[in-house]
């Protein structure tokens, strides 16, 4: 697993009296986007998910939002590992997350063949309700503030605003 942060510059210089105290190195590093690459492995995925959820909790998200992010992240990782990379150990999953007290932005990208969102059947339709799969995308879109697909469906970018919602919304 490789991890990289963006803010590695060292600004520990003399600070004139009265100048506002800048965020500490730790705080600045903590606020930076983090990019992690993992193999197509559920164990590695579990570690990344824990890392992201820990950050979400530290940033003060409410219980509803934590539940939503946990659920959407689980679905995105399963989609990438199982459906995207088809558990191929030679393929990786790239996760970028940027969590601030205002919002959590998480991007998951696989190295599979991609998919067309519009071709995914509605799992709530009567003819599909007894089928065992197809609900992950529905849940991600229902629980996150926004969900965007890119790179021919290999990449999903999800944002959750930090505002307590009474109930999740359905984005058509």
């Amino acid at each position: 697993m490789s991890i990289s942060g963006a803010n590695n510059d060292d600004r520990r210089k003399h600070r004139p009296a009265g100048e506002p105290r800048p965020p500490s190195d730790a705080a600045r590093a903590d606020a930076s986007p983090v990019r992690i690459t993992i193999p197509s492995d559920f164990g590695a995925s579990r570690e990344v998910q824990k890392q992201i959820i820990d950050k979400v909790v530290r940033c003060g998200f409410g219980n509803q939002a934590i539940f939503a992010i946990k659920l959407a992240l689980e679905e995105a990782m399963i989609n990438a590992i199982k459906h995207g990379n088809k558990l191929d150990p030679a393929k990786s999953v790239h996760v970028t997350y940027h969590v601030t007290p205002q919002q959590a932005e998480i991007t998951v990208e696989d190295e599979g063949g991609g998919f067309d969102r519009h071709c995914v059947p509605d799992p709530t339709a009567d003819e599909n309700i007894e089928k065992c799969s197809g609900r992950g995308i529905l849940l991600m879109e229902a629980y996150m503030t926004s969900v965007e697909y890119g790179a021919n469906g290999r990449r999903v970018k999800m944002i959750k605003k930090n505002e307590e919602q009474a109930t999740p919304h359905l984005s058509s």
């Binding site: 539940f67 399963i78 799969s133 992950g136 849940l139």
Partner: peptide, 16 residues
């Protein structure tokens, strides 16, 4: 406290 769509799929399979 938490379940995924895969768990829902398993429950549907059991129901069937």
């Amino acid at each position: 406290d938490h379940l995924s769509s895969a768990a829902l799929g398993m429950l549907i399979n059991i129901n069937n």
